[in-house]
Design a binder for these strands. Structure first.
Lengths: 190, 190
DNA sequence: GGATGAAATCAACATGGTGTTGATAATTTC
DNA sequence: GAAATTATCAACACCATGTTGATTTCATCC
């Protein structure tokens, strides 16, 4: 029973495809990247691509999955001042995967990453909003939450696109400060 | 000198094309709409389309231009409690052009509409942020502003996608309340 | 180190959208 | 009704897609 599935060869091929894709994405909008282009840069036959991925969308989803997998552990952090720690680690990770993160956050509407991250804090946030805004209507509360989520994502995204010389630390502090100002999450100490 | 440019015929053709495009956009992602499809629904020859527009992107830009033209007068409003009036009118207008607005706000990164709207308030906001957050670094201040813009856009967008039974009035009030809470724009009375 | 089977290559194909062109027909306006 | 503009039509070359079948390459196990 030689000739085993998921060879080193497969691993290599997949990795070359991913790297080539990401390289192209650094300079080109994702909607304009063709499978042909990816394969040419990766020096892989186009048929080989379709052997592993349905299309370029499928490829990107797999890349997103990997990022999600590395983000999930962060979400488990708890305890005193956890929001600051949490944000700090999240921002660091996204920054390390800037190209992918930028695309994911730009299309946050359909992002599973974003859904995962914020599902984690939604309940807690809603409870605090309820107190702070003296608002009981869950329909309205939900829009407050959306404001907070979109504000955070948008800020991080903007920073990923151009940090303007602002460090991870500075961004984390600033974001924490705004969130504190909206006074959600009962965050009193940062 | 008969046979004048920009006939009724031209006007009709352009309008049919726009309407068909918007109709398709209600049910389909913009990146998947082909020129062929638009022309078939509009019952217009594909060559005719290219007579008026470079491509489907160009078509969408022209539609966005029209929306921008109708939004600009709103930005001129001033005086006591203007933010509330301002938001109220803006939200109403976007809601009346939901399909276009949704697409524009989803791609707010490249949206000229968004740029126009927020360029109008940026200076004022930055000044107030500076006071409220006791922050002088313009790099950091800018990220505060981004948070506020993205939060607002994201909230309106979410509402456009699914109002959850929330009225224009309720959304306007809620948004004003959050902005007040971040205590920007010196907004004390709503 | 040779056999084995998985994976990659290659060429070819049908499909479908793109953007353009040149001749012809229809329509608007005067 | 004449003149100018606009729309139609058919045809074209072009390019990316996704699939197929035959063939070669290669990693792994014994």
């Amino acid at each position: 029973m030689a000739g085993v599935k998921n060879n080193r060869r497969v691993q290599y091929t997949k990795q070359v495809i991913k790297q080539s894709f990401l390289k192209i994405l650094e300079e080109k909008d994702i909607s304009k990247v063709s499978v042909k282009e990816i394969c040419e840069l990766a020096d892989v036959n186009r048929g080989t691509f379709y052997l592993h991925y349905q299309d370029s969308n499928d490829l990107f989803n797999q890349i997103e999955d990997e990022l999600i997998a590395s983000v999930m552990p962060i979400l488990q952090i708890e305890g005193e001042g956890f929001i600051h720690v949490w944000l700090s680690k999240l921002i660091h990770l996204l920054n390390e995967n800037r190209t992918v993160s930028r695309i994911i956050l730009t299309d946050y509407q359909n992002s599973r990453l974003v859904k995962n991250v914020f599902a984690e804090v939604q309940n807690m946030a809603m409870r605090d909003f309820s107190k702070d805004f003296k608002e009981n209507d869950p329909r309205i509360l939900n829009f407050y939450f959306v404001f907070f989520v979109q504000g955070s994502i948008g800020t991080i995204l903007e920073w990923l696109k151009d940090d303007a010389g602002v460090s991870e630390q500075e961004l984390t502090d600033a974001l924490t400060k705004v969130l504190e100002r909206i006074s959600i999450l009962g965050l009193k100490h940062v």
